[in-house]
């Protein structure tokens, strides 16, 4: 008992520092949440911290207004489409390619993989202009599909790299055993590689989702009327800088959804899925 108390006291300073940092980190988010809950008439005159002492002032009228605002809900819907759609396409293609690079033998495999890795160094910005003209001629400009495909293309090298390296770590014996048991490559992919690769696939999906959810530059370049939420908030800010009762809840929603997604999927990050298979 005494030892435990001594132990706790010894660690106390460290814990205090950590708690302080964590709180500090959360202040902007908390501020945003409280601001979004302030009624329009006081939002310009009072700071959000006043809500801490007088919680009764909080109201959801801003959120009602937000969900009545056609422009913003449409933008939110575009964001959902682009973020979910590009993530799904990316994961499917990258998983198939990753499996092939990891476990199928075909001529030129290693060289091709090096080429894929090399694509990692291409910065997104250099592609904006050429892709812009490409989209113009193909009619992909200002469509959700266009945004999706751009994100898929630029996420692909890293996605293949990540999944291939994870799949390579699956013990070869397991796949060979399945082959002898009578499984085709397709079946091995769906029955073994996908379930066993779940931790890597989930990580990849979350990072791609977050990255594309928060994207601004690609959406600004390739959309005019097709506006994701980031662009919508950005233009609200530019047009009426004082429109804070709409911007605050919109920003908070835009921040909360990926957070929920993250928390929902984080359990798949747990490692050790392979334990017990070999030896």
């Amino acid at each position: 008992m005494a030892a435990r108390i001594a132990n706790a006291t010894r660690k106390l300073p460290v814990h205090l520092v950590l708690i302080f940092v964590a709180v500090l980190w959360m202040v902007p988010t908390l501020g945003l949440l409280l601001t979004s809950l302030m009624p329009a008439d006081i939002i310009g005159s009072e700071g959000w911290w006043n809500l801490v002492s007088e919680p009764s002032k909080a109201a959801f009228e801003n959120y009602d207004k937000l969900f009545d605002n056609n422009e913003l809900t449409t933008a939110l819907w575009v964001t959902v489409q682009v973020a979910v759609g590009n993530t799904v396409i990316l994961v499917i293609v990258a998983a198939l390619a990753g499996y092939a690079f990891a476990w199928l033998e075909f001529p030129g495999r290693d060289i091709l993989f090096v080429v894929v890795i090399a694509l990692l160094v291409v910065p997104l910005q250099v592609a904006l202009i050429p892709i812009f003209s490409l989209y113009n001629t193909t009619g992909l400009f200002d469509t959700a599909l266009g945004l999706m495909l751009f994100h898929v293309a630029f996420g692909m090298p890293f996605a293949i790299f990540l999944l291939r390296n994870f799949f390579v770590g699956i013990p070869k014996d397991i796949l060979e055993s399945a082959r002898i048991d009578g499984a085709s490559e397709m079946r091995i992919f769906f029955k073994l590689v996908l379930p066993l690769g779940l931790p890597a696939i989930a990580s990849l999906a979350i990072f791609q989702f977050l990255w594309t959810w928060n994207d601004l530059i690609v959406a600004l370049t390739f959309g005019r009327d097709t506006q994701p939420i980031t662009v919508a908030i950005f233009s609200q800010l530019r047009q009426f800088g004082t429109n804070i009762e709409l911007i605050a809840p919109a920003s908070f929603v835009s921040l909360a959804i990926p957070l929920i997604v993250f928390l929902a999927f984080q359990r798949y990050f747990v490692q050790g899925l392979l334990a017990g298979s070999v030896k």
Binding site: P171, I174, E176, I180, A183, L196, L274, S277, V278
Partner: peptide, 18 residues
């Protein structure tokens, strides 16, 4: 392999972990 109608027991057992 899948058409050879054989079964193999590996040194590592190679069980499907999931």
């Amino acid at each position: 392999s899948r058409d050879r109608d054989i079964a193999m027991v590996f040194q590592s057992y190679a069980l499907y972990p999931h």
